[in-house]
Design a binder for these strands. Structure first.
Lengths: 349, 349
DNA sequence: GAAAAGATGGGTAACGTTACCCACCACGTC
DNA sequence: GACGTGGTGGGTAACGTTACCCATCTTTTC
């Protein structure tokens, strides 16, 4: 490897020399530490500005904080994640923290593990983990080392905080809405489990609630689930699978908007119309999806608020809180044009 | 701040003691450095595995490399960025590098600056900057310190590499396609410039090419541009602005798919149909947008290839290359159902 | 068989920052 | 006037890693 002749960084020592004080004094000013006179503060600040000094993060990391929050996202194709990230950024940037993101690779536990390790190696001060699929034990192990907030899982843990929306309520709203419109053959698209036996994952809860609601309304015989993934591709594949069933469902409840979009594509491709031939509903209602030209009925969970809260909880944990907090938002249904009563011809069993 | 009693990290010293060798030897094994016998390698590797040792990134950063690539994305709402990121990850992960992302805040130069500083502070080994809006000088300044690849700008610089698609060809393809279908009143949605006098930005080139093509085809009088942004919101606002013009355009060429989706929403909201009343075309053709239920005519630039190439170029630069490279992909038109010939009633001037 | 060349392992001084301690000064207080 | 008591400022030893150098030991060459 060739060493680039990049000009040497301005260090705390340079600032100290320039201001004719000790490095300790400069460090104290930087950290707003106790024991600095106003005169000292001004003098050092002037030197900092003059030299264009910026603290070296890696060096800080060796001693303590990095002022960095790590965010693990399954992928960046879901605009709902963008809402979360915006909320988080809002909350933490005032405290001088910076968010860095790493893709955790959707549904693959090994990739997820690598991503989480990458953040630990980079010595982040806290982690926001969105929709992890790993076993709970792994989360707790991480939480022992680093302040952790998990978003979108229904675990209960004494070691980390949880931010979630009430997926049971959300799924109930959708199924009730469809039933109220007159649907009986309501199908569901969910995410395939890659690790056995999880019940705290949000897609598991949405699917279980769908089944429960169907059963409670005497529609157990019409339960139809396609287990693919919460992506456009997954929605597309899932819908194709559901559409060939006989009799065909009159409504599809996709567990996520992205999957609903994929389902819409499959429905159109099959020559069917929405909501004339089939109703489609999603979940997430990311900002601006209301704009989408086929206005999708969806469940609104306020991603920005969730991200903001996650940020606040992380800052609190970094500041020393150890008691676990659970923050739950109550979702609401936003009915749009992708759902309607089934035509009379569709009602026959 | 409370100090957490996190158990001490396993360090290279622990590994050295456990394997009964020097820290230098361990370090050499870790870096695949010269001067290590096979026996030594195995012994050290065994100790590493046994203790679950992971190199401390911050400590590495103080001495040299961090094995981290920083990616600056304007935002994460555009699936095209996901394609780029996937390509990059593919390319660099085999070399032990990890990508971390930071949002650069779309169209705001100050936010962009903060984001780029954040990566420099975190001592990344290289930066992939997607669609920067800052002045060229700032890019060159950064490139003097860190290997830099810029994606989506048509600058020429001796200090950094460029990965881009030929936006002139792409825009030509769209305008030609629309003209060939019989359109004359073709409007364009572009991004508003926040910094004066850039001509190397991709949206500037797409817009300029649109104007040139219109002029060359004798349609200069029909040039209509809405300058908003390359987002769903921007497309929505832009289309609303264009739709009230009299006479109304028969086609809208949005400079990005996201904007096209917003435009579609506005068109539908205005009670118009696509492509019956108005054709809409986009640009990017992110993977899976072909799935979208209204199949959008778009310009395909292979984001995965672009990301992959960017990764390769960065690794080369990190390895010591200093000569600047420019990699350009030639886009292709993917005509789908959102564009068609205008109805006869729409052709009148 | 001596010298050169190659292969392998280790010692050590940084890298930039901060936590912890100590030293000093100017006050009041008894 | 001796003695605390805050309020300031500085010295220094880490933190974990690696680049650079040197010390062996083995093999090859004349």
């Amino acid at each position: 490897m060739v060493t680039r002749d990049r000009r040497r960084r301005v260090t705390i020592t340079d600032v100290a020399e320039h201001a004719q004080v000790s490095t300790t004094a400069v460090s104290k000013v930087l950290r707003n530490a106790y024991g600095v006179s106003e005169a000292m503060r001004l003098k050092v600040q002037a030197a900092i500005d003059e030299l264009g000094y910026r603290p070296h993060n890696a060096a800080r990391a060796m001693r303590g904080r990095t002022f960095t929050i790590g965010v693990l996202l399954p992928h960046i194709r879901n605009p709902f994640f963008a809402d979360i990230l915006d909320g988080l950024t809002d909350e933490i940037s005032a405290s001088g923290y910076q968010a860095i993101m790493v893709q955790s690779g959707g549904n693959d536990p090994a990739a997820e593990r690598r991503a989480s390790d990458a953040l630990v190696d980079r010595q982040v001060d806290g982690v926001l983990w969105v929709a992890p699929v790993c076993p709970r034990g792994q989360l707790e192990k991480l939480a022992k080392d680093i302040p952790l907030v998990v978003l979108g899982r229904h675990d209960r843990s004494a070691l980390y905080d949880c931010v979630l929306d009430d997926d049971e309520v959300g799924a109930e709203l959708v199924v009730e809405h469809l039933i109220a419109l007159g649907h009986r053959r309501i199908a569901h698209i969910t995410q395939k489990d890659t690790v056995g036996g999880r019940t705290a994952l949000l897609h598991t809860i949405r699917a279980a609630t769908y089944e429960r609601m169907m059963t409670e309304h005497g529609l157990a015989d019409h339960i139809a689930i396609a287990a693919t993934s919460y992506t456009e591709e997954g929605g597309y594949d899932g819908a194709r699978e559901l559409l060939v069933r006989d009799p065909r469902p009159t409504a599809i409840f996709a567990g996520a908007d992205q999957a609903a979009f994929g389902a819409l594509a499959a429905v159109h491709e099959a020559g069917l119309s929405v909501p004339g031939d089939i109703s489609v509903a999603g979940y997430d209602n990311a900002r601006l999806t209301g704009l989408a030209h086929v206005a999708l009925t969806s469940v609104d969970q306020d991603g920005a608020i969730m991200g903001q809260t996650a940020g606040r909880l992380l800052l609190e944990r970094i500041a020393g809180r150890t008691a676990a907090v659970r923050f739950s938002v109550t979702p609401t249904l936003v009915a749009r044009r992708s759902t309607a009563s089934p035509g009379p011809s569709l009602l026959g069993e």
